[in-house]
Design a protein around this nucleic acid. Structure first.
Length: 490
RNA sequence: GAGCCGUUAGCUCAGCAGGUAGAGCAUCUGACUUUUAAUCAGGUGGUCACAGGUUCGAUUCCUGUACGGCUCACCA
């Protein structure tokens, strides 16, 4: 990593010169009185005449430098923005000024001075003391085009954040989204909990796990693919409303809306069914959107999206009838399978009716659901933790919601019948034996918990990364994850 | 996993019917005390991703590899 080019060698030479002049290029502490944002607010009325009452001390990174012989302008960037500084030899003294002239774009400095406006009206700090807080020996990207290369931006997010202020905004918003949701859930008496990331049995979703090993226990452990079964154990234990922002790990492909590690909010509410969770979902999301944007109507990749509740609701079968020429209510499994294959869907041939319906939905309907849409009543075969519909045991009380063609959340009336749950596990176990790598393992301890009795419960999972993509208008999940997964550089 | 595209100076990018490379910014030297993509003059800076092949000669053509982007497949 120790690349040497002329630019870095020159900067290291400057570093040594500064040290020889008796100055510590990496001092321990500095005490700014203002951020650049503070200054913009506090000194809005300031005039072109410097007035000693408008004194500030600031710290930040030099982003541009315009030297003019015995004076110099520079732009200083701190965590809140940028401000222009003006340094004159007469004000800071010849010795200080010659040190200042050795400062480079990228250096972090502190300065005290007086806020005024230049002739052109730009808010500026006229410095009377300037000091180096951290010498930068690696040159920043060019000031005008900034850092464009995606590979470098993802691998060196620090450089991306320095150069591209809009990137920082995305991640500030991401935090605001999480905070908004957390505040609303707390107000509704949900309790935030933490459950294991390292799990002896993975479950709660269909995905291949990452496997690791615990030396002392001498056993394999899995990084969680979901925390569903742990949260429901807590419902059994008597927490009636729980949630967790969970980093989950799935050993699957990567693309514009999949990263191997991602964040999911899961919540469970005792005595609720999926209809109540639908309402909760619409309100939670709509209020989050409003909190971030001040309105429930936003634009994503040039599409207008309206989050105002209530959202459109369709059963999965209705959605297939609407968006395809396939009608699951009149066709046999064989006819469905033929239609699906004609539409280019690959099937093994041993899929059940319900599995074919789910395949058709995924392939032909999902991408057409642009406005927030709740799709409900799923085939039982693809929903092993959801409760059957009383009037139709082939379907379960489950819904997912879709926005801009993306699945953003998943919810159901939780299956709390331990006998039924055991049967569903057994079917999964036989699928696992048949080689379905994404089938579930039997979780005897979870069954034991259900045997004690779990109240009727509604549960919900929301993909926080995808929600953030929508609310920050980012096309790729990599742009809402600070350090997206990448192959090694070398 | 497949297809297409990309990888040239610190950054953003040109270029090459095959003859060992260019711009802007950055950087260095000099001038300059209200500039803001500062200006003016003059310099420095390259394993053209990596490895093979064709050729008198390859950054350029071909093949392979690595990394990345997009699309598809996979993804309750």
């Amino acid at each position: 990593m120790e690349e040497t080019n002329d630019l870095m060698r020159q900067r290291k030479d400057k570093l040594n010169e500064i040290r020889k002049a008796g100055i510590d290029p990496y001092p321990h502490q500095y005490a700014p009185t203002h951020t650049t944002e503070n200054i913009r607010v506090e000194f809005e009325e300031v005039t072109e005449t410097p007035d000693d009452t408008n004194r500030v001390t600031v710290a930040g990174r030099i982003m541009t430098k315009r030297d003019h012989g015995k004076s110099s302008f520079a732009n200083l960037q701190d965590s809140t923005g940028q401000i222009q500084i003006y340094v004159r030899r007469n004000d800071i003294g010849a010795e200080s000024y010659s040190v200042y002239r050795r400062f480079d774009v990228g250096d972090i400095i502190g300065l005290s001075g007086v806020v005024f406006r230049t002739r052109t009206g730009e808010l500026t700090i006229l410095a009377d003391t300037v000091e180096l807080l951290s010498k930068s020996i690696r040159p920043l990207p060019e000031k005008w085009h900034g850092l464009q290369d995606k590979q470098t931006r993802y691998r060196q997010r620090y450089a991306d954040l320095i150069m591209n202020p809009e990137v920082k905004e995305v991640f500030v918003k991401r935090t605001q989204i999480v905070q908004a949701i957390r505040n609303m859930l707390n107000e509704q008496e949900f309790i935030e909990v933490e459950t294991p990331v390292l799990q002896p049995i993975y479950g709660g979703a269909s995905a291949r796990p990452f496997t690791t090993y615990h030396n002392t226990l001498d056993q394999s452990l899995y990084l969680r693919i979901a925390n569903e079964l742990y949260l429901k154990r807590l419902i059994v234990g008597g927490f009636d409303r729980v949630y967790e922002f969970s980093r989950d790990f799935r050993n699957e492909g990567m693309d514009r809306d999949h990263n191997p590690e991602f964040t999911m909010l899961e919540l469970y509410q005792a005595y609720a069914d999926y209809l109540e969770i639908m309402e909760l979902t619409e309100n939670l999301i709509a209020k989050t959107v409003e909190n971030i944007h001040g309105t429930t109507k936003i634009s994503y990749q040039d599409q207008e999206i309206d989050f105002t509740p209530p959202w459109r609701r369709m059963t999965m079968i209705e959605s297939i009838q609407e968006h395809t020429d396939i009608d699951p209510e009149t066709l046999s499994a064989h006819e469905m399978s033929t239609k699906a294959k004609t539409a280019g869907i690959e099937l093994d041939g041993d899929e059940s009716f319900g599995e074919i319906i789910a395949e058709i939905f995924d392939a032909l309907v999902e991408s057409k659901l642009i406005q927030p849409t709740i799709i409900y009543d799923y085939p039982i075969e693809v929903s092993p933790f959801a409760k059957k519909k009383p009037e139709n045991p082939e379907l379960v009380e489950r819904f997912e919601f879709f926005i801009c063609g993306m699945e953003v959340g998943n919810a159901f009336s939780e299956l709390n019948d331990p006998i039924d749950q055991r049967q569903r596990f057994m079917e999964q176990a036989s699928n696992l034996a048949k080689g379905d790598e994404e089938a579930f393992m039997v979780d005897e301890d979870y069954l034991r918990a259900l045997e004690y009795g779990m109240p009727p419960t509604g549960g919900l999972g929301i993909g926080i990364d995808r929600l953030t993509m929508l609310l920050t208008d980012q096309y790729s999940i990599r742009d809402v994850i600070l350090f997206p997964q990448m192959r090694p550089e070398n």
